[in-house]
Simulated scan of single mutants.
Amino acid sequence: MENSFNSFDNHDRVLVAQSTEVERVAFYKKTYAHVAGGVLLFIIFEYLLLQSNTIVEFALSMTQGWKWLLLLGGFMLVTNYAESTALRTTDKNLQYMAYAGYVFAEAFIFIPLIYIAVAYTESFEVLQQAGIVTLTLFAGLSAVVIMTKKDFSFLKSALTIGFFIAIGLIVAGTLFGFNLGLWFSVGMCVLAGGSILYQTSNLVHKFTTEDYIPAALGLFASLMLLFWYVLQIFLDRD
């Protein structure tokens, strides 16, 4: 997700890179607090959704064949809408609604994977392990960018190509019924890691001090992508 403010006046908005040290620290605190809030809201949504057998059965039924592609397509539409809404408005209420809507979409698409992880292991141990690994990687990659202030915007083209290839493989695997396997999950973790570097770099070089909600949304999306494939690796390992 790349920052763009063509739709409204940006003259009074200060880029984080041009702000004072105090303003930068405040922006980082707000952004990561909102990422943490997104994670907490995701857990709440996931818990509530898993309480309904009807919702769980429906979500599981959507993992078969073209239905899975339909679900992924719907999720991508929600993602694009949430990101564009958060970026193109200064109305914090609309930004929060877009963020919450995106978190809910993530919670719904995670239902089959979370259900399988719990049912397969008969415990939350795998989820806890995958969560710890994901958060550790996320924190490490974010710290690299913030401490070095290196601009990782050059990753945009590589990430775009990588994600298009990944989508093509997912579509092919779904249509022709083959398992993408462990190495695909590893590759997607690499892509997710690159996305975290890119999104964190945007915090420093692209966003203004008032953009902590869209910044958090982008980071949350990359975090959840990483969690999805780290969890896949743990399940394949077992």
Score class of each variant (00 low, 15 high):
I109D: 10
Y229V: 04
L159D: 13
L226M: 11
F152I: 09
L159G: 13
L135T: 01
L225R: 03
L49W: 06
Y120A: 08
N3F: 15
F184Y: 10
S157P: 06
E125P: 02
G194M: 06
F154T: 08
G187E: 01
S153K: 12
V118K: 05
P112Q: 05
D236T: 03
D9V: 14
G38R: 15
L225Y: 05
T208C: 08
Y81Q: 02
A172E: 13
L191A: 05
L235Y: 08
V126F: 04
M62N: 13
V16P: 11
Y102S: 03
G101H: 05
F75R: 07
T136V: 11
D211W: 14
V144W: 10
V14Q: 14
A107P: 09
L155Q: 10
G140P: 01
G65A: 15
R13K: 12
L219W: 14
L169M: 10
I114G: 05
I132V: 15
L155A: 09
L70V: 09
V133Y: 10
L141K: 06
T85I: 01
V56G: 04
K92C: 00
L175T: 02
K156G: 09
G131V: 09
L141F: 05
L50W: 06
A143T: 00
T208F: 07
G73M: 04
G73P: 00
V25T: 09
D238G: 08
N3L: 13
S61Q: 09
Q128L: 14
E125R: 09
C189V: 13
Y229A: 01
L87S: 04
S153T: 10
A215S: 15
E125M: 09
E83F: 12
A82I: 00
M224N: 06
E2I: 14
T90S: 04
S195Q: 15
F164K: 01
Y96F: 05
Y99C: 13
L72N: 15
V16S: 06
T85C: 03
V186N: 08
H34F: 15
G65V: 03
F152C: 12
T148Y: 03
Q199T: 10
W68G: 02
F8I: 02
F220W: 08
A36C: 08
N53K: 07
N10F: 10
S123N: 07
Y32E: 04
I170K: 02
T208V: 04
L197Y: 12
S4M: 06
I233N: 03
V190I: 14
G168W: 01
M224P: 09
E23I: 02
L48E: 07
D151W: 13
A139W: 00
A221T: 06
A86L: 04
V230S: 12
G193V: 01
G38N: 13
L71A: 15
K206T: 03
I213W: 08
F227R: 11
F164A: 02
A221Q: 08
G65K: 10
L87I: 11
V145P: 02
G73K: 02
V144G: 04
Y198D: 05
L235K: 04
V56R: 11
N179I: 00
F220N: 07
Y99E: 13
R237K: 07
A221S: 10
L226E: 05
R24A: 08
N80I: 02
Y115C: 01
E83M: 03
M224T: 12
F207D: 10
V171L: 06
A166H: 02
S84N: 12
A107L: 06
L191Y: 03
F152E: 14
L15V: 09
V230W: 10
